[in-house]
Amino acid sequence: MTVILRDRIDPPFITAPPRDINEIRARVTPQLQAEFAEAGLTYGAPVFMRIFKEERVLEFWVQNGHQFELFKTYGICNYSGALGPKLREGDWQSPEGFYFVPPGAMNPNSSYHLSFNLGFPNRFDHDAGRTGSFLMVHGDCVSVGCYAMTDAQIEEIYVIAEAAHTNGQPFFRVHAFPFRMTDDRLMKEQGTMWYAFWQNLKQGYDAFENTRNPPDVTVEDGRYVFG
Score class of each variant (00 low, 15 high):
82 A>S: 15
103 P>V: 14
104 G>C: 13
68 F>S: 02
23 E>Y: 14
39 A>L: 03
20 D>P: 11
101 V>Q: 00
105 A>R: 14
81 G>R: 00
79 Y>W: 14
58 L>M: 07
101 V>H: 09
78 N>H: 15
43 Y>N: 03
85 P>H: 05
31 Q>P: 03
99 Y>M: 00
36 F>M: 01
62 V>I: 09
52 F>W: 06
46 P>R: 06
39 A>M: 06
101 V>E: 03
67 Q>V: 14
89 E>L: 07
112 Y>I: 10
30 P>S: 10
57 V>D: 07
60 F>G: 08
96 E>Q: 09
21 I>P: 06
115 S>C: 01
101 V>D: 07
23 E>L: 11
90 G>R: 08
110 S>E: 01
85 P>F: 00
62 V>Q: 02
23 E>C: 08
50 R>E: 14
78 N>E: 15
57 V>N: 11
98 F>A: 10
74 Y>V: 05
83 L>W: 09
75 G>M: 15
91 D>H: 03
34 A>P: 12
78 N>A: 15
62 V>S: 10
98 F>D: 04
48 F>P: 01
47 V>G: 03
96 E>S: 11
86 K>C: 01
111 S>T: 13
45 A>Q: 06
106 M>R: 08
86 K>A: 08
22 N>W: 15
50 R>G: 01
26 A>G: 05
31 Q>V: 14
63 Q>M: 04
105 A>Q: 15
47 V>W: 10
90 G>H: 09
21 I>N: 00
89 E>H: 14
37 A>C: 06
31 Q>T: 14
37 A>L: 12
28 V>D: 12
20 D>L: 00
44 G>S: 06
25 R>C: 06
72 K>V: 00
99 Y>A: 01
